[in-house]
Amino acid sequence: MTAFTVGFTVLAALLHVYIWVLESFRWNEPATRRTFGVSEEDARVLAPMAYNQGFYNLFLAVITFVGLALLKSEHGVGSALALAGTGSMLAAALVLVAHDRSMVRAALIQGTLPALAVLFLLLEL
């Protein structure tokens, strides 16, 4: 397990923990609304959806962290879990930009670390 594999995988998971905090706990704050490009009025309407979506991001991070924890002792299981987590993160970024080309910047922020994690995890199979 290389430092690149661990580093990019940890960073991808931590980014998604941060997104969980933004979506689930800081959604109505002005800085968060600016980050997501949502008005105050829309943020109130979207709050339940954002709260739920935030937890999806947390669960992806947890799956990824568990996979990392198992990589050394149970390499196959750890790799599968880490790839499931980071691959899902990457897929979500691709869906975002495929649905709305104006979201390229957001998709790059969301998907670059998972893409690098997936690359290095695959190289270790």
Results as ranks from 00 to 15, higher is better:
Val10Gln: 07
Gly111Cys: 03
Arg33Thr: 10
Ala31Tyr: 13
Leu11Met: 15
Ala82Lys: 02
Ile63Trp: 01
Ser79Ala: 07
Glu41Trp: 08
Arg101Met: 09
Phe59Gln: 05
Val45Ile: 15
Asn28Cys: 13
Met103Val: 07
Ser39Asp: 09
Leu70Ser: 03
Leu119Tyr: 10
His75Ser: 14
Val17Glu: 02
Thr2Phe: 08
Leu11Cys: 14
Gly85Leu: 01
Gly85Ala: 08
Met89Asp: 03
Thr35Glu: 14
Asp42Gly: 09
Leu116His: 00
Phe36His: 08
Ala3Leu: 05
Val45Phe: 14
Ala82Pro: 06
Ser73Leu: 10
Thr35Met: 08
Val10Asn: 03
Leu90Pro: 01
Leu108Ile: 15
Gly37His: 14
Leu68Asp: 03
Val6Glu: 02
Ala61Pro: 09
Phe59Glu: 02
Ser88Cys: 06
Arg33Leu: 11
Arg26Asn: 05
Phe65Met: 09
Phe55Val: 06
Val21Ser: 09
Val21Ala: 07
Phe25Met: 11
Val10His: 10
Ala61Arg: 02
Asp100Glu: 14
Leu119Ser: 02
Ala106Lys: 03
Gly7Ser: 14
Leu108Ala: 12
Leu68Ile: 15
Gly37Ile: 10
Phe120Trp: 02
Leu122Ser: 05
Met1Phe: 07
Ser24His: 08
Leu68Met: 13
Leu122Glu: 02
His16Met: 04
Ser88Ala: 11
Ile63Tyr: 03
Trp20Gly: 03
Leu108Ser: 12
Arg26Tyr: 07
Val118Trp: 00
Phe36Leu: 13
Asn57Phe: 07
Ile63Phe: 03
Leu81Met: 06
Ile19Pro: 00
Thr9Arg: 00
Gly78Trp: 04
Leu116Ile: 06
Glu23Pro: 07
Met89Leu: 11
Arg26Cys: 12
Phe36Ser: 07
Asn57Pro: 12
Val66Gly: 10
Val17Lys: 02
Thr32Asn: 12
Gly76Phe: 05
Phe55Asp: 12
Asn52Ser: 15
Pro30Ala: 09
Glu41Met: 09
Val21Thr: 09
Leu46Val: 13
Leu70Cys: 10
Pro114Val: 07
Gly87Arg: 01
Asn52Ala: 15
Leu81Arg: 00
Phe36Val: 13
Gln110Met: 04
Ala106Gly: 05
Asp42Ser: 15
Val104His: 09
Leu81Lys: 01
Thr2Cys: 06
Gln110Gly: 03
Leu58Asn: 06
Thr86Ala: 05
Val77Cys: 04
Thr32Val: 15
Ala31Val: 12
Val38His: 10
Gly67Trp: 00
Gly76Arg: 14
Glu41Tyr: 14
Val6His: 00
Leu119Gln: 01
Val95Pro: 12
Arg33His: 10
Ser102Glu: 13
Phe120Asn: 00
Ala82Phe: 03
Leu122Met: 13
Leu68Tyr: 04
Gly78His: 00
Ala50Met: 14
Thr9Ile: 03
Gln110Glu: 07
Ala43Thr: 10
Leu96Pro: 04
Leu71Ala: 05
Ala93Tyr: 00
Ala43Cys: 15
Glu41Ala: 15
Thr35Tyr: 11
